[in-house]
């Protein structure tokens, strides 16, 4: 087994309401489509990228920066797809 390379990309929360139920549930759904380990980090807090509850406890508000870390065979694709999803996400009134 060679060195496992960790793929990391960051994202700054744009939606005024922060990241809550809707974006995270889509995020988790997407994450389930990959095999690699996926984690989301905000400051010192770290969450399983497939755990809806612990992602919510990150309390990512507008202006916060989070980073997505992944390692495993499809890590690169996973991180890119997840970041792309978040970038495209727009608030709608709930």
């Amino acid at each position: 087994m060679g060195e496992v390379s960790v793929v990391t990309r960051s994202y700054t929360v744009r939606p005024a309401n922060g990241l809550h139920l809707r974006p995270w549930s889509q995020f988790v759904k997407l994450a389930h489509g990959y095999k690699c380990r996926i984690e989301v980090v905000k400051d010192s807090a770290r969450s399983d990228g497939r755990s809806m509850l612990s992602l919510l406890t990150l309390a990512a508000k507008c202006g916060d920066t989070i980073s997505i870390e992944a390692d495993g065979d499809d890590a690169e694709n996973a991180v890119n797809a997840l970041i792309a999803y978040l970038e495209a996400y727009e608030d709608i009134d709930e």
């Binding site: 549930s25 988790v28 497939r50 755990s51």
Partner: peptide, 19 residues
């Protein structure tokens, strides 16, 4: 579908591996 988001979130919570 926008109204169903809350239940989709429930589905995801109930699929939460950490929980």
């Amino acid at each position: 579908s926008q109204y169903a988001a809350i239940f989709e979130a429930h589905v995801q919570m109930l699929s939460d591996p950490q929980l």
